[in-house]
């Protein structure tokens, strides 16, 4: 999007001029441009264009970044690690956009896909796990996936003692799991544990031992749950409502359960699911659309809660 608006200002107008040659109207121009966007083929894993190698890309970025760094230092600037990281970050964006002739959404998708490589941080939806990561070693034989499955059951309202029984271990073991896994999340600066936990949570993972433990859910609740999973607007509505509830001193999670029959575990799971989806298919227009929709709904519900509580305290103050 940025490029369409400002491409000619940023000096990369060669391709645009080529486009202009055969143009008769703006509409055609737009279509051509979009088609051209699609001509670039992306590697599904790295999201790099396939018309260059990753090595070439990294070299180009390094060359430009180092030149700039040398320049800065020559003029007496004191560059910290943070500054150097920023310089690389910016050149990565510039080179990627230039070489693939893409919009900022594509660039962000690329950043998400490569966040571990370039910034050492995982992004939900693009988690890459290496073998023998010590943070992912099972604890008492329980791996992260199983731990997440247990957490899901417990936050859905099932007593942890029941969950332990189904897993066949003493509560002591659960308490240790529930200490060590969160500690690892804190210690792991790449956020692999946290992100993976979130991803499993979004997938609503389960293990055979726990399959018979089901949190009670009404027929209406099940239907609503299915609806927030498939209808993003409905999810945004409930997310807005929940937020509004908190602002009126109501326990939002409980309110969702009481009114829509969805427990907090299922709700959070769906929230993670949409977040992962959003990361993978980054589209700023959609993101704006959903965020505005949620705000609009939040206002509607806020008005409703306010009415139930006899209005807001400053309702009688007018301009």
């Amino acid at each position: 999007m940025f490029k369409k608006l400002f491409g000619s200002l940023t000096g990369d107008n060669k391709t645009e001029n080529q486009n202009h040659e055969a143009q008769t109207s703006n509409d055609n121009f737009k279509n051509d441009y979009e088609n051209e966007d699609q001509e670039v083929e992306y590697d599904p894993e790295t999201l790099h264009g396939t018309h260059y190698s990753v090595e070439d890309f990294d070299n180009e970025v390094a060359e430009r970044a180092e030149a700039w760094i040398a320049d800065e230092r020559a003029s007496g600037e004191n560059l910290e690690d943070k500054d150097i990281q920023n310089i690389y970050f910016n050149y990565r964006r510039a080179v990627y956009t230039e070489w693939n002739n893409c919009d900022s959404d594509q660039m962000i998708r690329f950043e998400h896909a490569n966040s571990l490589k370039y910034s050492g941080i995982q992004t939900s939806g693009f988690v890459k796990v290496e073998d023998n990561n010590p943070f992912l070693e099972p604890v008492h034989g329980v791996d992260l996936r199983t731990y997440t499955a247990m957490c899901l059951k417990i936050s859905a309202g099932i007593d942890y003692l029941e969950v332990c029984k189904a897993m066949g271990f003493e509560p002591v073991i659960w308490e240790e799991l529930n200490t060590i896994w969160p500690q690892r999340m804190g210690e792991d600066t790449s956020f692999t544990v946290t992100t993976l936990f979130g991803q499993y949570y979004a997938e609503n993972v389960t293990v055979p031992q726990l399959e018979n433990l089901k949190a009670e859910i009404s027929e209406e609740g099940a239907a609503n749950l299915e609806k927030i999973r498939t209808d993003r607007y409905f999810y945004e509505e409930l997310a807005g409502a929940r937020q509004a509830a908190y602002e009126y001193g109501i326990d939002g999670a409980q309110w969702i359960l009481d009114n829509f029959g969805i427990n907090i575990a299922d709700f959070q799971s769906v929230a993670m699911q949409w977040m992962t989806e959003q990361n993978q298919n980054w589209n700023s227009e959609n993101i704006m659309e959903f965020s505005n929709y949620q705000q609009e709904k939040q206002k509607e519900y806020a008005a409703k809660f306010a009415a139930e509580q006899g209005g807001n305290i400053a309702d009688d103050v007018n301009f």
Binding site: G249, I250, A306, I313, A314
Partner: peptide, 17 residues
């Protein structure tokens, strides 16, 4: 925390106004 969040909600409401 519920009441606290409600109090902040009213304050934000004034601010938004």
């Amino acid at each position: 925390h519920r009441v606290y969040s409600g109090v902040n909600g009213q304050l934000s409401n004034i601010r938004e106004k």
